[in-house]
Design a protein around this nucleic acid. Structure first.
Length: 587
RNA sequence: GGGGCGGUAGUUCAGCAUGGUGUAGAACGCCGGCCUGUCACGUCGGAGGUCGCGGGUUCAAGUCCCGUCCGCCCCGCCA
C-alpha cells in the first residue's frame, strides 16, 4: 500500500518507513549505487539503492527503465547538506530502498516525459500519445489550473444563489448559427437529433420556469473549421439571470474573472472599461481590441478635404475615409518590411497603403502629397521624429479592417503586447443585424433572441441596420472570451425579429414554437452571458492554443489521432439507423 | 473552399537553393561495459533510416517537376 506521494516527504519524516509508488522518471546508475527519481503528479522523490545494504532492491533498480511503474519500500533519510537538491520540493530527503517491485514495465516512450529538455515533440506525436503527453508538467499544470478554475466558478455562483442545472445534449437542429453536429435516431429512422451549439434556449426556458439564476459549465458543439482557439467541442460557462440589466451582468462577472485571475497570481483592474462597438471599430478596427498597446486609428480625412492625390480623392468622393496609425520607431523599417505590411493590408481588400517615414525630413511612398501635407498628417496621427505613419484610404469598413490588422501585426512583431498584462474590456451596443450579401438577407449579429434596445425597436422594420442590441462581449488582450445579451421576452418582439432575418411565420412556429409559446406564459425579462472556458484557461495559463488546456483535443482537421476518429461504421449500424452512404470522398 | 509553413533515425533537427561530397549527419534518447553521492551523473563502445506516399524528369533524385496524404497557422466559416 502506498503510504505517501512522491511530493510529500520532508525532513520531519526522517526515520519513517514508507512505501512510494510511481513512475521511474530517471535512473542514475553509478555501479554499486543506483539512484531512481520516482515521479507521480505530486512530485519527484529520490530513491537510493545500495548494493551493500539491499542487494535485491539494487538488482531490480538496475533493471528498471524510464516510465516503469514501481513500488519502493524504504526509510526516509535526511540528505547531508552537500547532496541536498534545491530544485525539487523533496530535495532535502531521500528514500533508502529496502525493496523495489516492478508493478509494470514500460516501453521506451516516443518522447521524453519532461519539459525544457530539448525541443518539444511535434504536436502530431503528442496527440497520438496523448496519455504520455499528459504526464508532462506543462499539461499537468494546465489541467490542474482548469480544475481549480471550474471549482472556483461553481463556488462563486453557488455563493451568489445560482443553480447549476444540466440541459440535454440530444436536441433539435435549428436554423441560424453554426452548422450542427447531427445524431441519427434508431427509433426514428430518417430523423436526427442535433448536439447543442449552446444551451441558449434551455436557459431561457429555465428563466420562464422561475429558476431566476442559472449557470452551467457545459460542453458545446459546432461543426465549423478549427483554429488555435476553436475546437468542434468546447466548454462554456453559461449564465442566465431573470430581471437582469447589462450592468447587473457586468457586476456579476467582473469579480468572478478577478477571482480566476488570482488563481494565477494576476491582479486585474476593476471595473473593466466599456467600449461601444462603433467606437471600437473606429479606434481599433476590430470588435475585439487588444488594449495592451496604443497605435489607435485616427481619421485624417478632415486634413485632406481638398487633396488632389488620386487614390485619396477617389476614397473621399466615394463616401469613404482616410485613416492612419503612428508606428513608434517605425522610421527605421526597411522597404521589404513596408512591402510586407502593405501585403498584410491588401488581404482585406485595401488597394494601397501609404507610408511616411519621419526621419531627417519625411520620406513617403506618395511624395506627390507634398511636405506640408505629410507634416500635417503626421501631426494628426500623433507621430514624432523616428516614427512611421501608415495611411489607408477607401471604404470605411475596409480601411478599419486593414489598419486594425496592421496594428495587431506590428504589435506582434515588435513585441508590444506585454504577456504579463491582462486588459479586459466590455464591448457594448452591438448592432442587431448585419447584411448577409451572399444570402441577400439580414442576419443576427449576436443571435436572434437578443433584445433590441428599447429606443431602437421602432426601426426594426424600417431601418434594421440602425437597430442596436442589448448585447455585450468580454474581450481580454484581443481575444473574445465571452458574449451575452439581454434577451427578448415578449412574443411579439421575438416574431418581429424573426421576420427581419427572413424567418417566416410558419418556419418560426415549427422551429421555435415552444419558445414563442413559453413567452405567453409569464416570461420574465432576462439576460445572461456565456464565457469561453477553454479560452479563458488558455489565457490564464499563458498558452496560445486551447488544445493545451483540453485533455484530449482534436487536430486542425477535426480528427483525433489517438482514437483515429471519426471513423466508418459497420453496414449493420447504418442499416439499423436507416442510413446509406451515397459517396465517399475520392471515390 | 483558398493561402502559407512543415514532414529526413525513437525524438528534435541539419542536409535540398546549385542533383553526384566516400556507407545520409548531429544532438538527445536507446542498448552494452566501467564507475559508491548522483540529481540533465560521468566515461568507453554499439545499434538504429520506406528521406510521408505515388508518379515523372535524369546516366544519377532526400535534393528538380506533378499528384496525394498528414500536422500547424491564417482567410472564408464560427448566431
Amino acid at each position: 500500500m502506498r503510504t505517501h506521494t512522491c511530493g510529500e516527504l520532508r525532513p520531519e519524516h526522517a526515520g519513517a518507513r514508507v512505501t512510494l509508488m510511481g513512475w521511474v522518471h530517471r535512473r542514475r546508475d553509478l555501479g554499486p549505487l543506483t539512484f531512481l527519481d520516482l515521479r507521480d503528479r505530486y512530485g519527484i522523490t529520490q530513491i537510493v539503492c545500495d548494493e551493500q545494504r539491499a542487494p535485491e532492491a539494487h538488482a531490480v533498480a538496475k533493471q528498471v527503465r524510464n516510465e516503469y511503474v514501481i513500488a519502493v519500500t524504504g526509510t526516509v533519510v535526511r540528505r547531508v547538506p552537500e547532496t541536498v537538491n534545491p530544485k525539487i520540493a523533496t530535495g532535502e530527503i531521500e528514500v533508502v530502498a529496502e525493496r523495489v517491485i516492478v508493478l509494470n514495465p514500460a516501453k521506451t516512450p516516443p518522447f521524453p516525459i519532461e519539459d525544457e529538455r530539448g525541443s518539444p515533440p511535434s504536436e502530431e506525436v503528442r496527440l497520438k500519445y496523448r496519455y504520455l503527453d499528459l504526464r508532462r508538467p506543462r499539461l499537468q499544470r494546465n489541467l490542474i489550473l482548469r480544475h481549480r478554475a471550474a471549482l472556483a466558478v461553481r463556488q462563486y455562483f453557488d455563493r451568489h444563489g445560482f443553480l447549476e442545472i444540466e440541459t440535454p445534449m440530444l436536441i433539435k437542429s435549428t436554423p441560424e448559427g453554426a452548422r450542427d453536429f447531427i445524431v441519427p435516431s434508431r427509433l426514428h429512422p430518417g430523423k436526427f437529433y442535433a448536439l447543442p451549439q449552446s444551451p441558449q434556449l434551455f436557459k431561457q426556458l429555465l428563466m420562464v420556469a422561475g429558476f431566476d439564476r442559472y449557470f452551467q459549465i457545459v460542453r458545446c458543439f459546432r461543426d465549423e473549421d478549427l483554429r488555435a482557439d476553436r475546437q468542434p467541442e468546447f466548454t462554456q460557462i453559461d449564465v442566465e439571470m431573470s430581471f437582469a440589466t447589462p450592468e447587473m451582468i457586468f457586476a456579476l462577472i467582473e469579480p468572478l474573472i478577478e477571482e480566476l485571475c488570482l488563481l494565477v497570481g494576476r491582479e486585474v483592474v476593476r471595473p473593466f472599461p466599456r467600449l461601444p462597438f462603433a467606437e471600437a471599430i473606429e479606434r481599433y478596427g476590430t470588435d475585439k481590441p487588444d488594449l495592451r498597446f496604443g497605435m489607435e486609428l485616427v481619421d485624417v480625412s478632415p486634413w485632406l478635404q481638398d487633396v488632389e492625390f488620386v487614390p485619396y480623392r477617389r476614397a473621399l468622393d466615394g463616401g469613404g475615409v482616410i485613416k492612419g496609425i503612428a508606428v513608434r520607431g517605425g522610421a527605421k523599417y526597411s522597404r521589404k518590411r513596408l512591402d510586407e505590411l502593405a501585403a498584410v493590408a491588401r488581404r482585406t481588400g485595401l488597394s494601397g497603403l501609404t507610408w511616411v517615414k519621419l526621419g531627417d525630413g519625411e520620406v513617403a511612398s506618395a511624395p506627390a502629397l507634398g511636405p506640408a501635407r505629410l507634416e500635417a498628417l503626421a501631426r494628426a496621427v500623433g507621430a514624432e521624429r523616428g516614427d512611421l505613419v501608415l495611411i489607408a484610404a477607401g471604404p470605411r469598413t475596409v480601411v478599419n479592417q486593414a489598419l486594425g490588422l496592421l496594428r495587431v501585426e506590428i504589435a506582434r512583431r515588435e513585441g508590444l503586447a506585454d504577456g504579463g498584462q491582462f486588459r479586459f474590456v466590455w464591448i457594448t451596443d452591438f448592432p442587431m443585424f448585419e447584411w448577409e450579401a451572399s444570402e441577400q438577407r439580414w442576419s443576427a449579429v449576436h443571435h436572434p433572441f437578443t433584445s433590441p434596445r428599447d429606443e431602437d425597436v421602432d426601426r426594426l422594420e424600417t431601418d434594421p441596420a440602425s437597430v442596436r442590441a442589448k448585447a455585450y462581449d468580454l474581450v481580454l488582450n484581443g481575444v473574445e472570451i465571452g458574449g451575452g445579451s439581454i434577451r427578448i421576452h415578449r412574443r411579439d418582439v421575438q416574431q418581429r425579429v424573426f421576420r427581419v432575418i427572413g424567418l417566416g411565420e410558419e418556419e418560426a412556429r415549427q422551429k421555435f414554437g415552444f419558445l414563442l409559446d413559453a413567452f405567453e406564459y409569464g416570461a420574465p425579462p432576462h439576460g445572461g452571458i456565456a464565457l469561453g472556458f477553454d479560452r479563458l484557461i488558455m489565457l490564464l495559463a499563458g498558452e496560445t492554443s486551447i488544445r493545451e488546456v483540453i485533455a484530449f483535443p482534436k487536430t486542425a482537421s477535426a480528427t483525433d489521432l489517438m482514437l483515429d476518429s471519426p471513423s466508418e461504421v459497420s453496414p449493420a449500424q447504418l442499416e439499423e439507423l436507416g442510413l446509406a452512404i451515397i459517396s465517399r470522398r475520392g471515390e
